[in-house]
Design a protein around this nucleic acid. Sequence first.
RNA 1: UCCCCGAUAGCUCAAUCGGCAGAGCGGGUGGCUGUUAACCACUAGGUUGUAGGUUCAAGUCCUACUCGGGGAGCCA
Length: 460
Amino acid sequence: MRRILIKNLLNSDHPQAEVRACGWVRTRRDAKGFSFLEVNDGSCLKNLQVIVAEDSPAFAALHEATTGAAVAIGGALVASPGAGQKWELKAAALEVLGPADPESYPLQKKRHSDEFLRTIAHLRPRTNKYGAIFRIRSEAAFAVHRFFRERGFFWLHSPILTGSDCEGAGEMFRVTTLPHAAPPPGGEDPFAADFFGREANLTVSGQLEAELFATALGNVYTFGPTFRAENSNTPRHAAEFWMIEPEMAFADLNDDMDLAEELVKAMTTHVMEHCREDLDLFARFVDKELMRNLEAIAAEPYVRLPYAEAVAILKRSGRAFEFPVDFGADLQTEHERFLCEEHFRKPVIVYDYPREIKAFYMRLNADEKTVAAMDLLVPRVGELVGGSQREERLAVLERRIAEAGMAAKPYWWYLDIRRFGSVPHAGFGLGFERFLMMATGVGNIRDVIPFPRTPKHLEF
RNA sequence: UCCCCGAUAGCUCAAUCGGCAGAGCGGGUGGCUGUUAACCACUAGGUUGUAGGUUCAAGUCCUACUCGGGGAGCCA
């Protein structure tokens, strides 16, 4: 008999005489004459309550059905006389597919700390909280694709391996097939004997490739893993993380801010509509304010604030910041938090940053002092989105590359786009894990990605 | 990379001034006619992160290291 997902059994609108359910035992409660098994198959947060009576053939295997064991149960889905669940499964047959030694199985019914669960990341999805996180993660990814598809964007598979060593988004991971022990002789090209015959790295961003395709397909987005070899040790950074990077042709900074706001709202709304039960767990145990915050993020317009005004607000605040606020200096974490958590109490988009503190490819504004860049800041998470209108004027871009002290030659293809049919275009990057932190209230990026990669951590 | 805090049973934590290392949960055994973070009784479980030092005596004080957490920088 084919198994039925527990999610579907629990949503049944009628009793069923013969069903088969499979899953992992969360806990067993023995009474005189029968036992209750709580079985979870990952299809939803809730467990299926299974009744195993002493006089049932299922009883023989019960002693092995301990916490963590994989079981298959055949029986009748009947209305539960007890409070707390609508349906329960009266077992006629019980098979323990994979036992779990209760002495050494590390998960117990009671709450574990996130720190401990990180050390058993292979088992943590079997807990309520992590099961919920990764169901939400899957649904949020679906929301991304749905959002862009509905708007005529094409999903661009930007490369993971890249030959450009100068994307300016942070330290890169080197990719090589050369043996460790054989450093190339001095003077020669150290990469000549390597797989690609030149330096290769893992991508830090698909933006440049997305720009190329935006000038052909119009509107595109990338959604995949990116890699940064920064020695960042914070709850908001990982060496491998997923990023969503849309790029629009014939678009300016206002279009860019509109798109970012719409995307965050659509992802939030989608998760609220499709992950109600899982989100509830976070609203109850992780962040009491969660639902109210998400409703505001999904519905209220975001503040749009030129950088110069942000600086003025911070100066007027009378707040003693650890780092002084001044035009020309980048906003510090404490400044960003003040703006969106205390002053406005909602998401804030800061735009038109001083040119000196932003990347070379951002479009120079008419004032020649600022660039058309924007950051979307959200309470608790900080920078969720960073984007800009791109510099489409060849001469200006070449000047900016020179000013940044960079060589123009490796960018020949990037500059070609400005030579042939150049158009105004804009895009941004949204950190997928940071969105998940915002959506669930989880405070550490390592807990919203299945197998976190951070400095000195590559287990699993 | 810098600053701060921490590490005691499988997990979460206690241990007063430096003086016998404990509890809850989890595990095991038994009990209980419907439980649902079940309940009741009994029970096993420890090189106090590692290495050194001070002391009659160190979980407790000192030094170094390892690991974990928080904050900062870098960013998404």
